[in-house]
């Protein structure tokens, strides 16, 4: 479907009728400013589903979920809608949706192919390759050592740019033969490249070899989490607590699923996260639960209040 030519359908789940009416009227009022015509349909058939953050996760819905958050102080975040609704949020939500759907039609084939090629190359520990863009700038990749270097001047700030849609089609992966003046370039771990590639791949969903229902397990702390997505630390702490799939992870970390997908992609490519063997999901944490006889100073029911009090004393917002 090309949403720039077709109609973007939307629906509601778990919200009050009055809120549905309010949102629908706002969407109709701003429809001329939207990048595509819109139509309300039942949630089950909708491409975009606004759903109550407090309601159970909807079943049988295949469209993209937009959490409705009732928090006046909430910041605008990707994939969410603050109530009462802001016109700018609604415009952003529809514009992002159309952009992502258009990108999925045109750019995801290239992205998925590139990710697969690089993943396979590093899994095999093959010979050095160059990843070159249309302007001739490039990354030299050393799969056997899990390292890379820049073919031109070093500039870490450029990494997030490398896998953006406007550059993707010009990227070419080819074997690389070291020239004398390039052999002494500073090499570094490949993880920052993979991290940013994983984040960019989120626009195309999870990595091709990972299923939406696959439980993921943290193997090593993702020390690159500071480079995004915004909720990466929350996602890391939630996944560290237990293996889970991306939908459950997004719920546990209270972030939009798109952020959980971006985090999972990046961490999977870097090897910080691995698919969990089904039996690990509960068994591992069971060990932690039963260790030690000291019950500690805190009754379990006091945890939320206690953690809140410590945060407050330290000036940390939850």
């Amino acid at each position: 479907m090309d949403p720039t030519k077709g109609v973007v359908t939307y629906g509601f789940h778990g919200m009050a009728d009055s809120e549905n009416v309010l949102l629908q009227s706002m969407i109709e009022r701003i429809s001329r400013r939207l990048p595509a015509p819109v139509a309300r349909v039942p949630a089950r058939d909708a491409q975009l589903v606004f759903f109550d953050d407090a309601a159970p996760r909807p079943d049988g819905i295949t469209g993209r979920l937009v959490r409705v958050v009732r928090d006046m102080d909430a910041q605008r975040f990707s994939g969410g809608l603050r109530m009462p609704p802001h016109v700018t949020d609604l415009l952003d939500i529809f514009a992002e949706f159309v952009e992502q759907e258009t990108y999925a039609e045109t750019g995801c084939g290239v992205m998925k192919s590139l990710v697969r090629s690089l993943h396979d190359l590093f899994q095999a520990g093959g010979a050095p390759h160059a990843l070159v863009d249309g302007d001739g700038a490039g990354l030299i990749l050393y799969p056997a050592d899990r390292q890379f270097s820049w073919s031109g001047p070093d500039d870490e700030r450029l990494l997030p740019e490398w896998f953006q849609s406007h550059r993707l089609r010009g990227l070419d992966l080819r074997p690389w033969a070291a020239s004398t003046n390039q052999q002494h370039r500073k090499r570094r771990g490949i993880e920052p490249v993979f991290w940013h590639m994983g984040l960019a791949h989120a626009r195309c969903g999870l990595l091709p070899w990972v299923g939406r229902d696959d439980a993921l397990k943290m193997r090593a702390w993702p020390y690159l989490a500071g480079q995004g997505p915004a909720g990466a630390i929350r996602l890391a702490t939630a996944l560290r607590a237990r293996p889970q799939n991306v939908a459950a992870l997004a719920d546990a970390a209270r972030v939009p699923e798109a952020e959980a997908v971006a985090f999972a992609n990046a961490a999977l490519l870097c090897g910080f996260v691995v698919p969990a063997i089904p039996t690990e999901t509960y068994a591992e944490r069971g060990e932690a639960n039963t260790r030690g006889a000291d019950p500690g100073p805190v009754d379990a029911t006091r945890w939320p209040r206690l953690l809140g009090a410590i945060r407050s004393a330290l000036g940390i917002s939850a």
Binding site: A288, N289, A293, D294
Partner: peptide, 9 residues
């Protein structure tokens, strides 16, 4: 949880 988090021995 109490054992899981606090059993520090």
């Amino acid at each position: 949880s109490a054992c899981g988090l606090m059993g520090a021995n």
